[in-house]
Amino acid sequence: MNFSDYPWLKLPYQQLASGILHQRTHHALLINYVQGSGEDELIKLLANRLLCESTNQLDPCLSCHSCQLFGVNNHPDYYVITNEQGKQSIGIDQIRNISSKVYEKSQQGGNKVIWIKHASLMTEAAANALLKTLEEPPEKTYFILSDEHNSHLLPTIHSRCFSYFLAVPNLEQSVEWLKKQHNQQYNDNELATALLLSENAPLTALALLEPEKWQQRKQFCDNLSHVLPQNNYWQLAKTFDHEQFLERIIWFSTLLSDALKAKQKVGRFIINRDQVPLVRLLATQNNEKITALYDLWLQARTQLLSVTGLNKELIVYNVLAQSELIN
């Protein structure tokens, strides 16, 4: 990884890699992040440094046999554990399997690194099985657990790890980075909006700014401008696939939140900086209606995320119909 591509990762890497260099690193590192912050790139570089045969520099040497194996995704002492395809959780068998391997001698004679990706997906049984290994870690074995900042891990797992939060860069730094990626295709308000919709995570904002995706958002906002005066939310059903509804919920919820900010004369804090006319249009409605719409759409989001077996299309139609009943 080149830090010129992800400049905000340089300091976090230096902070974490200095412990490796001076042989003070914790055997279990828990990294929390905002998705799209470059978390995978940082963790891969840390894993590479832990496996590197060089001991006198901060960065992996990239030339030793271990680095060469890592570079072609073929290092025998590097394990990545996450939920298997089609499954929603990391099961106990996956943890037991890796636990048996970590007590064996490393194949390259150096460190072993186990990265548990989306660690909160571990079942309680899997987490308890891992806990036993974390309590009595094998020599020269390092665990990296990673998950989003709002995820939930067992407190006992937390207590066995060194926790590190990967902070997102500030808005100005991210805007400058996005300008380089898009070669001035978007103005500052559009770039800031993409970042604020993405919790300031640069890589998530970059994906949102892909022309097709950004056009979908603009079209959604245009459609809202037409349906709001007639309170005809049902027409929105024609404008998107139902699988995209979660994304639309986030977009509409932020617009509603911005409308409340505008009514309270704190418009400088709005998220949708490229949609000021639409925010003002929403702000012509009373506070009670805006709040009721906000609650309704977020409730639909919760249903879509947490309840299995429900007809998603039915949820979409219901929230659009209920929106028209709010006065």
Rank of each mutant, 00 (worst) to 15 (best):
D5Y: 13
Y13K: 01
Q14P: 03
A17Y: 02
S18Q: 14
S18V: 03
I20H: 00
L29T: 00
V34E: 13
Q35F: 03
E39H: 10
L42R: 02
L45Y: 05
N48R: 15
E53M: 08
N56L: 06
P60E: 08
V72F: 05
N74L: 05
I90F: 09
I92R: 09
Q94W: 05
N97Y: 11
Y103V: 11
K105E: 02
G110A: 01
K112H: 00
V113N: 05
K117M: 03
E124C: 05
A126Y: 08
N128E: 14
L134G: 02
L134C: 09
E135V: 02
E136L: 10
R160C: 01
C161V: 01
Y164G: 00
F165I: 03
V168L: 00
Y186L: 10
L191N: 14
A192F: 02
A201C: 07
A205P: 14
L208E: 13
V227R: 00
N232M: 04
E243K: 15
Q244E: 12
I249T: 14
W251Q: 11
L256M: 09
G267L: 09
I270D: 11
D274W: 12
V276N: 07
P277S: 08
L278W: 00
A283F: 04
E288L: 14
K289C: 11
Y294E: 09
L298S: 10
A300W: 07
R301D: 10
N318G: 12
N318R: 11
V319P: 04
Q322I: 06
S323T: 09
